[in-house]
Design a protein around this nucleic acid. Sequence first.
DNA 1: CGGTGAAACCGGACCACGGTCCGCTTATAT
DNA 2: ATATAAGCGGACCGTGGTCCGGTTTCACCG
Lengths: 213, 213
Amino acid sequence: MVWTTAGPLLQLPSLMSERPLLPLLGDAAPERRDAARNREALLVAAQEIIETCGIDGVTMDGVAARAGVGKGTVFRRFGSREGLMAALLNFSETEWQASVISGPPPLGPGAPPMERLLAFGRSRLETTLRFADLIRAAGAAGTRSYAAYSFVAMHVRYLMGEIGVTGDIALLATALLAPLEVPILEQQVQIEGMDLDRIHVAWVDLAHRITQH
Amino acid sequence: MVWTTAGPLLQLPSLMSERPLLPLLGDAAPERRDAARNREALLVAAQEIIETCGIDGVTMDGVAARAGVGKGTVFRRFGSREGLMAALLNFSETEWQASVISGPPPLGPGAPPMERLLAFGRSRLETTLRFADLIRAAGAAGTRSYAAYSFVAMHVRYLMGEIGVTGDIALLATALLAPLEVPILEQQVQIEGMDLDRIHVAWVDLAHRITQH
DNA sequence: CGGTGAAACCGGACCACGGTCCGCTTATAT
DNA sequence: ATATAAGCGGACCGTGGTCCGGTTTCACCG
């Protein structure tokens, strides 16, 4: 992933319609070619507008105009503004997932599970803050999407199991992830002016307390 | 507080403009009488619309029309739709705060701090779910408002101090509160279909792990 | 007690944006 | 070549939010 200097933006891969890392089973009807072209053009346009004017500058009319299509097409492809944002977010999320699944340790496999968990926390903290605007703009479509929340929850549950945590692992995992959500982090960073390192240290402490290891 | 049978709605006190329990220091300019009348009429109107059509049925035009004022007045009084929702929320929040500050134990003072903390968690869990729609509609204005977040955080920090918790109490309190936020709870209840009692039991376990008591 | 000035307030016309809809166009399979 | 379904586009709507000219309230003073 290459970051521009202008802000927390993502570099779009050449093929925008690539499948997520964990593909769904039935690909009943593939996309028509013009539809695929438009999807890519729309994502590029949205990306460019974000680079220029920020997230709030992204209007559905504006994206459609820049991509040279009608407004209806944008909604056909992405359902809503949140859906468009979620699609944008999906790329960085997919890339990040790859580094968790098959990247170098300690984030990737190979390290002891507790070390992986702590590396996960740090990485997730940074990623969430970097994409905070996009995540917020994606709203429910981003949080509840298959790619975003579920993968993270599954991974933490798995690591907790490996560590040997006892108790309601699903809910303990949620408790460990909740302080890494955007609203909580923004409250701490922007309003209470907390230091990022302090938050990280506290999260490591929290992980030890919750896992009791 | 008297609950109607129609849904999770609040009974408005007779004087809508009463001050919060922890008043701000400088009340520089008191409200003009017509302005106070309008504020009350607007809150009543909004409340009635919620009872009839739910939160999504609340439009700023609708509230203004029902209160017999112009739309501009609504925005002057509450700043935004979120601000209006936050004002509505403030009443139940204030009442709940009263039961924490001066109500019967174990929620109120008198019980050992750990018992108070557990009672707090249960009560907060129920209250948050009851007002979930309103809290979500209040958005940032609700979360960041003085009355809502700050009071809760202060109270948990205080109890943690009394219990004798060591560590970064401010951030441990946040970690304990984060799983009680609306988005997390709705994810668990609505999407993962979790039982309310299970969530409560897990939160109690979490409180023991985090406080290490 | 009544007048007076200024600040606060009010209202509804106006704008921008998200989202919908339906008749027309185009790609693809046969 | 043709049928058919998917795709497309832009006119249209409802809603949140802004703005500014006219009106009301209230403190102060003669």
